Simulated assay, not measured.
Amino acid sequence: MDVPRAEERTSTVVSDPGWLRIAVWLGCPLAGALAGWGVHAIAGWVASLAWVPLQGPFKLIASIPQPYGLLAVIGLGVAAGLVLAYLWVKDLLTITVSTARVTFQRGESERSVDRAAISAVFLDGKQIVILGSRGAELAREKNDLSNVQEAFVAYDFPWRDGGDPYAGDYRRWVPDEPTLPLGANALLAAREKALSGDHGDDAAELRADLGKIGVVVRDEKKRQYWRLVQG
């Protein structure tokens, strides 16, 4: 993507290439169909092996008259592929940068941050992070896009090549940390369980709740590190 200068247009959209979405919508159902064909091809053989657990589905597939059994399994594979494609495309991130604000869109979810409220923008691994005054975290989004930095720089956002200006302030969370605000330990404990169970939506919601009481949290290998918003 060739990012134009800010004065040449009102906004810049950074997103995955269009061919990726087409490839996902075509490739996932095709992969599902091939998987279904493969399952059907080995169903009779697996059903003959007494030591294989959960033989019921394989016996059922092998018992369906042909070609209906093959068509049914391929149809299920295609349906599973379409579901996977939908979830994949829904999770793709689109970033719209303008002189007034930055907007993150993922599926039907959309979130905007005004330029005037932003004090720093940087990458934390594969996540793009936006900070406000006193170091409050305004946004954190998983990001696999290219040319993100160029888009922000083109509109004079405060991009930081050096990463988080508060990186040295983080401390690893331990239960019942006495210096945290009231309620923060309970939220961090609940978030630890969400991280352990790979419940990303719950972890993100709890991160937002922590931000409301002035606690910024980052993760490293499912370990939580925290800092307080200044002031």
Rank of each mutant, 00 (worst) to 15 (best):
D2K: 15
E8L: 12
T10L: 03
V13C: 02
V13R: 14
G18Q: 07
G18D: 07
R21Y: 09
I22Y: 13
L26V: 14
G38S: 13
H40P: 00
I42M: 09
A43R: 10
W45A: 08
V46L: 10
L54Y: 11
G56I: 07
L60Q: 11
S63T: 10
S63P: 00
I64G: 01
P65D: 09
Q66Y: 01
P67H: 00
I74K: 04
Y86E: 11
T94G: 05
E110F: 02
S112M: 10
D114I: 14
A116S: 13
I118M: 11
A120K: 07
D124C: 01
V129E: 01
V129L: 00
V129R: 08
S133L: 14
A136D: 08
L138H: 08
E141V: 11
K142E: 13
N143H: 10
N147V: 03
Q149G: 05
A151H: 07
F157V: 12
W159N: 06
R160W: 02
G162E: 14
G163A: 04
D176R: 12
A184C: 03
L188W: 03
A189V: 09
A194W: 08
A194V: 04
L195G: 07
D201L: 13
D209Q: 14
D209I: 02
L210F: 03
E220D: 13
K222N: 15
R223I: 02
Y225M: 02
W226P: 00
